[in-house]
């Protein structure tokens, strides 16, 4: 474990805490894409299939359980909670997220880490995570005003994978000296998708003005 990866995991955890805080305190999920949240449930389940078969560390197991548990809880809130589900921006959250699944799955069949079920699903989850934020970014562009918690959530979510990239560079030079194409390229694509959001987020933060993404 290195500081960059720990910072990445903590940033990821913080993003989920901020989202749960927003939903629980404001009893609203306005501006949050249910489709992105559903994709994250798939990402975590297909990535952590080895949860009960491969013990890495207490930290690793605990975090996997937290990520799966919280992502399912968020989808439950947005779909089933009697108050929160009324606030879901259903007619703006229109990205056809199910269209992302077949290409990622086909890519996982073509370029798996190993040609075994768990490694194909692991690769699928890495590819899917790279594009899972698209419905959320589209929804942000449509939202007239983005509340601070939603903006912070997306910023932290983008920042976590950027920290993972630093972690990969660090590990390459200090530990593995191996190229890891699947997570590296997916991680770069994932972080690149946040590029314009980062630009407008940091600009709004510096100018103390409301965050607005150009349509």
């Amino acid at each position: 474990m290195n500081i960059f990866r720990l910072a990445g995991d903590m940033t990821h955890l913080l993003s989920i805490v901020v989202l749960l805080l927003k939903i629980r305190t404001t009893k609203s999920c306005a501006g949050i894409s249910l489709k992105t949240q559903e994709l994250y449930v798939i990402v975590f389940i297909t990535r952590y299939l080895d949860l009960f078969t491969r013990y890495v560390s207490f930290y690793n197991t605990a975090m996997k359980l937290v990520f799966i548990g919280t992502s399912v809880a968020i989808v439950w809130y947005m779909r089933l909670h009697k108050v929160v589900k009324q606030t879901y921006s259903r007619d703006e959250d229109t990205f056809k997220h199910y269209l992302l699944i077949p290409p990622c799955f086909i890519l996982a069949l073509l370029i798996p880490l190993e040609f075994t079920v768990t490694e194909i699903l692991w690769s699928f989850s890495i590819y899917l995570e790279a594009v899972a934020i698209l419905p959320q970014l589209l929804l942000l562009q449509r939202s007239s005003n983005i509340d601070n918690l939603t903006g912070s959530y997306v910023f932290l979510l983008g920042a976590y994978r950027a920290l993972y990239i630093v972690n990969w560079v660090y590990r390459f030079f200090t530990e593995t000296h191996k190229i890891r194409w699947i997570p590296w390229i997916s991680g770069l694509v994932q972080t690149a998708l946040y590029a314009d959001f980062f630009y407008y987020y940091i600009k709004s933060w510096k100018n103390h003005e409301k965050l607005r993404l150009p349509a």
């Binding site: 990866r5 995991d9 990821h12 080895d50 491969r54 890495v56 560390s57 690793n60 975090m63 996997k64 990520f67 880490l113 692991w122 993972y164 972690n167 590990r171 530990e175 593995t176 191996k178 890891r180 699947i182 997570p183």
Partner: peptide, 10 residues
């Protein structure tokens, strides 16, 4: 299997 470093990451 842990020789592949990526599987100790989340």
């Amino acid at each position: 299997p842990l020789d592949r470093p990526m599987h100790d990451e989340l």
